[in-house]
Design a protein around this nucleic acid. Sequence first.
RNA 1: CGGGGCGUAGCGCAGUCCGGUUAGCGCACCUGCCUUGGGAGCAGGGGGUCGGAGGUUCAAAUCCUCUCGCCCCGACCA
Length: 476
Amino acid sequence: MAEKVTPRDVDYSRWYTDIVLQGKLADYSPVKGAMVIRPNGYAIWELIQSNLDRLFKETGHVNAYFPLLIPESFMQKEAEHVEGFSPECAVVTVGGGKKLEENLYIRPTSETIIWAMYKKWINSYRDLPLLINQWANVMRWEMRTRLFLRTSEFLWQEGHTAHETYEEAEEETRKILNVYQKFAEEYLAIPVIPGRKSEAEKFAGAKHTYSIEAMMQDMKALQAGTSHNLGQNFAKAFDVQFQDKEGKLQYVWATSWGVSTRLIGALIMAHSDDRGLVLPPKMAQRPIVMVPIWRGEDQKQEVLDYADGVLKELKAKYNVIFDDRDQYKPGYKFSEWELQGIPLRLEIGPKDVAKNALVMVRRDTMEKQFVNRDGILQTVETALDTMQKEMLERARNFQQENTFDVDDYDTFKEIVNGKGGFIRAHWCGNPECETKVKNDTKATIRNIPFDQKKEAGKCLICGGASDGRVIFAKAY
RNA sequence: CGGGGCGUAGCGCAGUCCGGUUAGCGCACCUGCCUUGGGAGCAGGGGGUCGGAGGUUCAAAUCCUCUCGCCCCGACCA
């Protein structure tokens, strides 16, 4: 086999790049830090979009679109927000050949322009809640970029909601995090840990931030989605008030939440192997490839006729690739589709025609089965369902096997600097202890899990009192 | 911005030290034949401002000067 993919244990980061390029998911663009998402990669994004969009609508949200350019003065209205985002913004200073009166920021996120509009739209409690989502591109000037994981421009969805009370905003924030968790697990087959971010790691301008954290195959953590309770920070900055039932003016309570094309990076790093991409069936627009095999013209016709029947049957439910290209041999085709992560391969040759059978190969396990031609649609459906379930289970086991409870700093450092993983350790809540860990080891607090058990303990660093464990890990 | 490296065909490279026919190789691509149960073979073919500018020379991918760009490693981040 010609080596198109660097094995993971040789160089994980080269492996990742090879998967993306060889799987034709994306390519480098002429613009530094930006990438082109190719059809294979965009197909994954479309599935992320369509499924999440449905889940958002089921929870009462609607879509809208706000402009790419944001007046500089808007960006500067919320103090923490300015501080957090200014360094990574691209700014338009010239338009129509003239220097602009006011610079325009390319959105790094849309809170400011959206809240400027919400001021116009919200007057009464009857206007609330306002539950808007947008699918958009954003730009954050990055020094070091990686395909899908960190590019200057990326695609995402950002939800921005407005509520009457803190409690309602809080409920929304948590509700969305649940949606993200459900999507990650049921569709991406990636188990995640939902929890609250520490003060140091929260979104610039939020009261607090929740996240779902996933473990990649190299034991590093990847933040797969965030949901922020913005409190009244933006309402105050943009003076968005509503009249409540008693006729009193109150500032609106806000949330925002998002996931990005980064999820594609997560999908790759959670499941793929040294042969290439591995897609969970629900993330494959084309879940099946059929490869007909023959020897000589007489066999060719016989095989193609037989295959055509199978194809027609499967097409009722699935988007099937029928690879009858004559210039490539089967082995070549097998590798090519494996590289692109097609979940199921069906091989049809003279022997199968004779036996009224087919050969079915699962991409995740590479397990080869001889299956009966009759009932093929059902067989395929079952195989894809099983695959989807088993991929999640496998990832969950992996995550559990690489999560450790640690009570002393030496062991902590040993693990972090060694094979890595999630470390559940006690923390007193002091940001200084958190910073020390980060400076010593580069590991950070990923989040404080919702399912944290009450457990008396001592902070890993200062020995101060702690009543539960938080998740530490090196992160992408 | 600091440290390291690289620009020669779509991709990966050789040639540069020591200047000299028409700039070469592998992969990919095109045509034909032949093949097809794990990345076949043969024959033919297309494709180059040697990153750019200037200079030295009878002669520059090769030597000199300047310049542009990119990649990797460190300080920010979904």
